[in-house]
């Protein structure tokens, strides 16, 4: 599991839209993001980077450095 936890989700769905592997879904009952398919996570960090309230935590032991265009 690479996404460690989601705390304080506001249910905006940005992480769901940004995830290329469909790992995160919005829970229909609570309206908040849940880690639906953790084994599919490719550690791209897009969900974390696009979360407006910084609610997503990644497991540090499996974290890859973020690739930026400036190096």
């Amino acid at each position: 599991m690479t996404i460690k936890s989601i705390h304080g989700c506001i249910g905006c769905g940005e992480c769901v839209q940004s995830c290329p592997c469909d790992v995160i879904r919005l829970d229909p009952s609570s309206g908040k993001a849940v880690i639906a398919y953790p084994e599919d996570c490719q550690i791209c960090h897009l969900c974390r980077l696009y979360c407006p309230v910084d609610a997503i935590e990644m497991s540090p032991e499996k974290t890859l450095p973020v690739i930026t265009p400036w190096g």
């Binding site: 506001i10 249910g11 905006c12 980077l49 407006p52 309230v53």
Partner: peptide, 17 residues
Amino acid sequence: GVRPLDALVTMLTSFDT
């Protein structure tokens, strides 16, 4: 990642929550 202003707008307009 997301720009601060975009994050603020997304946060303040999540009226479903």
